[in-house]
Nucleic acid binder design. Structure first.
Length: 1131
RNA sequence: GCCCGGGUGGCGGAAUUGGUAGACGCGAUAGACUCAAAAUCUAUUGAUGGUAACAUCAUGAGAGUUCGAUUCUCUCCCCGGGCACCA
């Protein structure tokens, strides 16, 4: 007998099969049809991957089994050839992608053929073939016609250096994959497909398909259907909260005065008072020895008399700064150091006359250390009434290592800071909010503390009684006009117009008019104000800090042009935060019942509210802007972030009203809220939601433990939301299907006429996109300039192309009728291949079940990579459903059954990639071991749905097995029978048949191996048994089995023979081994007949020597009996 | 951070779905054949102790449920894949 020569056998049979066309599917055959599908490969320059072979072999095995079961099988192949790598290769080398695609697919075809897959090559398709993409374009026109294709502005990744839009895949760590430039976001008009219109059906219909559970889950997660409610929260400017003397919890502020200062002079008492008003505990120690400054002594004094801790802020001036730094140098930790200093350097002014921070500089402090002791360190340059140059301040800031943005010197040469501004600076950049007041005020607002109110009340009443002429007139106008707001749906206090009050006490001031809800103060000034501008400025500044906007009018202005004044006031009201654009914020929640527990609101950093409100009205505008900026950048690198720590910033100065509890709750922005999902805003329920709880704990927000549950729709409207976005369908690339649309100057967007399809891709010299990011097609004037199909006037072609998902969304339909030039496929063929077959002819049974039902059907079995279980699968389901709606396909779903395979990893568990140089070339293996060995190995190496590591050494196992099978030929005898072997083969038929159906190829092969090992022990094997065995092996190793089959004098191919059936009677074991356990441990085994009576088996067990030894004189508590398996005796 | 897989000998992996843990293959060791090697065939091969029969320990770690757990439940650790923190 000849040796097993795989080279000879494999090429021989591949040619023979091609000649006999045994794998060609027959349209409209009477046999039951079976459509098995693999994801058609992208013909990359890397050649066939061992991963392709894994999936192709699996479906090949199933297809071959189906043929042997009597089916008319369609197992097609083609090329998904549009794509980035080919385009990038074209950009790099200037080679025509058409030629590259042809070369690559030629290599792939040859490689695939060398593996003996039973593809119907006569139906080969290619998405880049104009005869194919004509229909892709045609389908796009149908989407357009039905209004499902539209244009929208979308944000894309943009590489500023390459001037090209980037796919997500091409962005690595926020940088362009090719040139490493940081990727920017850009807005661009894009074609979109409205897949969201089908979201609900895409979700629901998963009930009717046979996908692996993980795949269904992935689809459902991606679609992300959730039922919840939208609830509107009113946004308000909270009342200016004025303190009620609660100071215990507030920050301690220590004011250290300067060399010439005492607690009684300069601005110190004023500053102390103002800060105390705002609930802060303020210390103003009288530093000794100010005449002869000794900073160490003074530091000792402070330490002795003033408590300093990490909640302390030291505000210093001049020489006080030196004392403060002495303290910090001693290792004392404080929260913040604010230093007002005079920046005198060089020769500009007489140093000696001005004690300053420059003195401290001369003392050689360790500033790095000092800066670490305070969480914040700010130096604010203030020259008092001295004139200094700003440049000097900047130089000094540099010397101190302080960012120059802290320099508060004013242009051009004067940097004196006035007291209100000083207060402003201390508070504005500080982290202390104005403390909200407890309880209700006279009008539902607190505008001052009770003490001040009592003190000023009488004066207010008097003023109201005796208004000036101007005040009188304006008051009348304000009441009469009511300044009706633009939005009729306004609710609450301002429903009938803005509510004004006159002579209202705010803080320690009495303002002329105020609209509290909008925080607008109107002052009417007499001539006297010209003389006290300074006081007015202070008043204005303080009111501003409290969140008010102030407009001033002169008496005569009010009297002479009252209408003009009213007009100005209404204009101010319009742009104020509570103007027409700012009614509220709608949140989406899946748990509207938890609304009573909502203690704060969180917005996405990109939430539109932030553009609607005046950021100026936020107390921490700078911080908020900074956060938004950081969040914007973060979104570009978030994928690479290892640990996502929750971050956020409160919008200080506005509040939301919980519609259930009517309480004012804080509003935060945080990037754990996505702008794209829901409404980009949530109500946070820390008591019930883990994420909210985490966030609340991090930022010390209150957490309610118990709260009342609400009904589902008590406070909002029930709504169904989907995570799914519409499909961005444009690419500014060359290598894709041109979108068949024309831009006409007169008619606008005009679809290309169907008779003009396909719009072929023109040849270009340069595959680079244009300077402004348009597709390279935009550069070909000859192609771009065209006539409008409607008016025949001047028009331009759309230069965007389609994504490569387009062609792959419907390719399985084209296989049924690949050469049709009248339609994408004939209805006849579609119906035959997609709708379930009639039951098989009488006497025949199928080992698999066929689905029946209205609109049901599709590709019978579709296997592909796990990486495609969301996007590709969803896109093609959407596309198919759209065609079904148009009555163009007979089923509502494209695939009846979907499975996925795991990756093949290189040694060390890495992904195979050309750059790592760890790619396995299947050609070498086919040459050395043979295609049958490679196929067998890939099926044997591990569970099909899991990732497995490639191992070259293990290949020898399957090869040895095939050689053993080959050598068995010499043992074949026609007549003899062997009962033991009959039994084994029947068992193998059952096991292999079953395992193939559930893709447990590895155990199917091990069954076949066990069988050959057993046979090896005998001198002969009957031909019948051997042939059955060969049939079982034939889907795995088609060449070898075909050769032996022909050696056994068969004329027809083994692949056209019938799949063996097993006889259940022959499989029944006559004697069954039963384990006998004592207390759960196996102590003996006994034999029993199948289904023998429980009592008899127990008797046998007790008679066993070993067992009787164990149970002697023991109290048996319990005997557990498992039929045909074990007895467990417990004591 | 979230979701989905997974973790079993020197290695790839089996285990009828709660019932003998380690099928099958690779590798390793010994033997047969051979002048020899390769190939092939035969035997052994989770660990520890024991001449042996056998015993004990072992499925990432720890707990729990159970007569019995690789399998179910909880907590934690590690690896792989995916991602849009999905409210």
């Amino acid at each position: 007998m000849e040796e097993y020569n795989h080279l000879k056998i494999e090429s021989k049979w591949q040619k023979e099969w091609e000649r006999n066309k045994i794998y060609q599917a027959k349209n409209l055959s009477k046999k039951p049809k079976y459509y098995s599908l693999i994801e058609f490969p992208y013909p990359s320059g890397d050649g066939l991957h061992v991963g392709h072979i894994r999936s192709n072999t699996a479906m090949d095995i199933i297809s071959r089994k189906r043929r042997m079961e009597g089916c008319n099988v369609l197992y097609p192949i083609g090329w998904d050839a549009f794509g980035l790598p080919t385009e990038n290769y074209a950009i790099k080398t200037g080679k025509d992608p058409r030629i590259v695609t042809k070369q690559n697919s030629n290599i792939f075809r040859k490689q695939l053929k060398s593996l003996g897959f039973s593809f119907d090559w006569s139906r080969e398709i290619n998405t880049t073939d104009p005869k194919y993409y004509k229909w892709t374009q045609w389908m796009f026109l149908q989407f357009l016609k039905k209004g499902l294709a539209y244009k929208a502005k979308m944000i894309i990744n943009w590489c500023p250096k390459d001037k090209i839009g980037l796919a997500n895949e091409e962005v690595v760590n926020g940088c362009c994959e090719r040139c490493g430039t940081a990727v920017e976001k850009r807005e661009k008009e894009q074609w979109m497909l409205a897949i969201t219109k089908y979201a609900d059906r895409l979700d629901r219909d998963l009930d009717n398909v046979d996908y692996l559970p993980q795949i269904k889950l992935a689809q459902r997660n991606w679609i992300g259907k959730s039922e919840g409610a939208e609830i509107e929260f009113k946004i308000i400017h909270p009342t200016p909260a004025l303190p009620e003397g609660k100071g215990e919890e507030s920050t301690k502020i220590v004011i250290l005065h300067g060399k010439h200062g005492t607690p009684e002079n300069y601005f110190y008492p004023w500053l102390k008072k103002e800060l105390e008003k705002r609930s802060h505990k303020v210390y103003l120690p009288a530093l000794p020895n100010t005449e002869v400054p000794n900073d160490e002594e003074q530091a000792d004094y402070v330490l002795k008399n003033v408590p300093l801790d990490e909640n302390t802020v030291i505000v210093t001036h001049s020489f006080g700064g030196v004392v403060a730094m002495r303290l910090l140098e001693r290792g004392i930790k404080i929260r913040e150091l604010i230093l007002f200093a005079t920046p005198i350097t060089g020769t500009f002014l007489d140093k000696k006359s001005r004690p300053s921070i420059t003195d401290a500089l001369a003392k050689g402090f360790n500033y790095e250390k000092i800066k670490k002791q305070a969480n914040f360190f700010r130096v604010i340059f203030d020259s008092g009434d001295t004139i200094v140059r700003k440049e000097d301040a900047v130089i000094l800031a540099k010397n101190l290592g302080i960012y120059s943005e802290y320099v508060k010197a004013k242009e051009p040469h004067f940097c004196a800071i006035e007291e209100p501004e000083m207060l402003n600076l201390i508070l504005e950049e500080n982290t202390y909010p104005l403390t909200p007041s407890q309880g209700e005020g006279e009008f539902g607002y607190h505008t001052t503390d009770p003490k001040t109110w009592r003190a000023l009340q009488e004066r207010v009443l008097e003023m109201r009684k005796n208004p000036t002429e101007a005040e009188k007139k304006l008051w009348r106008y304000l009441r009469k006009n009511n300044l009706t707001p633009a939005l009729p749906e306004r609710k609450g206090e301002n429903a009938d117009g803005y509510h004004f009050r006159r002579q209202q006490i705010i803080d320690r001031f009495i303002v002329d008019f105020v609209c509290l809800s909008e925080k607008l103060v109107i002052e009417v000034d007499g001539d006297i104000h010209d003389y006290k501008q300074k006081e007015d400025k202070e008043r204005t500044d303080i009111l501003r800090i409290l969140g008010f906007k102030i407009i001033r009018f002169k008496n005569e202005e009010v009297l002479s042009d009252t209408d003009g004044v009213i007009k100005k006031i209404s204009e101010e009201l319009k742009v104020l935060p509570f103007g027409e654009d700012l009614g509220g914020v709608t949140v989406f929640t899946t748990r509207p019942d938890t609304i009573f527990g909502a203690t704060y609101m969180v917005l996405a950093p990109e939430h539109p509210l932030l553009s609607r409100i005046l950021l100026d009205t936020l107390a921490n505008k700078k911080e908020v802007l900074q956060y938004i900026e950081v969040a914007r950048k973060k979104s570009e690198i978030e994928k690479t972030a290892e640990n996502k720590i929750k971050t956020g910033v409160e919008l200080k100065g506005i509040k939301a009203i919980n519609p259930a509890t009517k309480e004012e709750i804080p509003i935060w922005i945080a990037d754990y809220i996505l702008a794209t999902y829901g409404t980009g805003a949530i109500m946070a329920v820390p008591a019930d939601d883990m994420r909210d709880k985490e966030f609340a704990e991090k930022f010390s927000l209150p957490i309610i433990e118990n709260y009342q549950k609400a009904g589902f729709e008590d406070f909002g409207k029930k709504i169904t939301k989907f995570k799914l976005h519409d499909w961005i369908f444009s690419r500014q690339r060359y290598w894709g299907e041109p979108i068949p649309v024309i831009h006409c100057e007169k008619c606008g967007l005009v679809p290309v006429l169907e008779k003009d399809l396909p719009i072929k891709l023109p040849k270009v010299k340069n595959y680079q996109p244009t300077e402004n990011g348009e597709s390279p097609l935009a550069n070909i004037a000859k192609w771009v300039n065209t006539k409008c199909p409607k008016c025949k006037g001047k028009a331009k072609r759309e230069t965007d192309t389609m994504p490569n998902w387009a062609g792959s969304s419907w390719y399985y339909l084209r296989y049924t009728d690949p050469k049709n030039s009248k339609a994408f496929a004939s209805q006849k063929n579609l119906k035959y291949w997609l709708t379930p077959s009639l039951p098989p002819p009488k006497g025949e049974t199928l080992s698999f079940s066929l689905p029946f039902g209205e609109g049901q059907g599709g590709v019978d079995w579709y296997n592909g990579g796990n990486e495609h279980t969301t996007l590709h699968l969803l896109y093609s389901r959407f596309w198919h459903k759209f065609l079904f709606n148009l009555d163009l396909v007979p089923t509502s779903e494209p695939y009846i059954k979907r499975t996925s395979h795991g990756l093949i990893l290189a040694k060390g568990g890495e992904k195979m990639s050309k750059s790592k140089g760890n790619v396995i070339n299947p050609d070498d293996i086919v040459k050395i071991y043979g295609a049958d060995t490679l196929r067998l190995y890939e099926m044997f190496m591990g569970p099909f749905d899991q990732a497995i590591t490639w191992s070259e050494e293990a290949l020898i196992g399957p090869r040895r097995f095939l050689e053993r099978v080959w050598n068995l030929q010499s043992k074949v005898q026609k007549k003899e029978k062997n009962i033991k072997i009959e039994f084994l083969i029947e068992k193998a038929v059952k096991k292999v048949s079953y395992d193939i159906e559930v893709m447990k190829f590895n155990t199917a092969i091990s069954t076949l191996m066990i069988f050959t090992n057993e046979i090896g022990k005998y001198d002969f094997i009957s031909q019948g048994v051997y042939e059955k065995f060969l049939k079982l092996l034939s889907p795995f190793a088609p060449h070898l089995t075909e050769e032996i089959w022909s050696n056994l004098k068969h004329k027809d191919s083994i692949h056209l023979s019938y799949w063996p059936k097993w006889d259940e009677n022959l499989i029944k074991d006559e004697a069954i081994k039963i384990m006998v356990q004592i207390n759960g441990k196996v102590r003996a085994e006994i034999f029993a007949q199948a289904d023998e009576k429980e009592e008899d088996v127990k008797k046998k067990a007790f008679l066993n020597e070993n067992i009787s030894k164990y149970i002697a004189e023991k109290d048996i508590k319990k005997i557990i009996y498992v039929k045909n398996r074990l007895i467990n005796i417990v004591f």
